[in-house]
């Protein structure tokens, strides 16, 4: 109904174009047979993808740093974030609002400042920035997303489900594990996906807390823009887009099965 109005249709098209155009340009450039930054007309080539996978700095940034860091950071963020969400929603704590604000801080502080702060803390404590600091930093970024997604799902679960379970013989803990947790599963997975994407595409924090041996893919792309600037970085970006896109599609597929629509 609203979407039928021509002006609104035009607006929708403009918004979509604005969102998609840069991504399409990047993908286009990555298939360019020449080293110019332009969308190929006619011939396409995979040479920049070949270059990407042949270059150790790119390959390692993806397979040895970005992917493992994102996996570890999102796993940690999911566990901590889910537990925090349960605590924030269910526990009878006095300063609930204060706790929630603290957990949400990474969303409010510019991540470049957060990165700088973490760097200063690490240095003053005598740590070297390395894989671990990167994982911890990204975990911090992911936690608020997990809390938000899992928390709102938890609030939406009818407390009568647990009461029904208890009337059937469940202790409060059993009722939570057997009735609440299974119904949170898709929210936990979706929170984990968010956390993974946040880590996988972060550059601000990584600039500070990544060590010399832990260059993430976004940092590698960023530094390459200054040095060489051939379409390998477009290929690298496209690889990144494909990974994130596949993940989201996969999750939606799983959710659909779970939700039963």
């Amino acid at each position: 109904m609203y979407g039928r109005h021509p002006v609104l249709r035009l607006l929708i098209v403009c918004v979509l174009a604005f969102l998609l155009a840069p991504i399409l340009v990047v993908i286009g450039v990555s298939f360019n047979p020449t080293s110019a930054f332009r969308i190929p007309i006619g011939a396409v080539s995979m040479r920049w993808y070949a270059r990407f996978f042949a270059t150790p700095t790119f390959r390692d940034a993806l397979f040895l740093v970005s992917l493992p860091v994102a996996l570890a950071a999102s796993a940690l963020a999911t566990v901590i974030g889910s537990l925090a969400a349960i605590g924030l929603v269910r526990a009878r704590i006095a300063a609930r609002g204060a706790f929630e604000s603290v957990f949400m801080l990474p969303l409010l502080i510019p991540s470049i400042l957060l990165g700088a702060a973490m760097y200063l803390v690490s240095v003053s404590l005598g740590f070297r920035t390395n894989f671990l600091t990167l994982v911890l930093g990204h975990m911090l970024l992911g936690i608020p997303y997990v809390i938000r997604v899992v928390g709102s799902a938890l609030v939406a679960i009818d407390p009568r489900l647990e009461e029904a379970a208890r009337s059937l013989g469940c202790t409060p803990v059993q009722a939570f594990l057997r009735v609440v947790v299974p119904n949170l599963r898709s929210s936990i997975l979706s929170g984990a996906t968010f956390a993974f994407i946040v880590s996988f595409s972060d550059i601000n924090l990584a600039l500070f807390v990544a060590g010399p041996e832990t260059t993430t893919l976004p940092i590698q792309i960023y530094s390459q823009i200054f040095w060489e600037g051939d379409p390998t970085i477009a290929a690298a970006s496209t690889v990144q887009i494909i990974i994130v896109g596949t993940l989201i599609l996969l999750m939606q597929k799983i959710f659909k099965i779970r939700v039963g629509l």
């Binding site: 009568r160 009461e163 029904a164 009337s167 009735v179 119904n183």
Partner: peptide, 12 residues
């Protein structure tokens, strides 16, 4: 035995 107005069936 307990039956609620909204049924409270376990959706999963």
């Amino acid at each position: 035995g307990l039956v609620f107005q909204n049924h409270a069936l376990f959706p999963h």
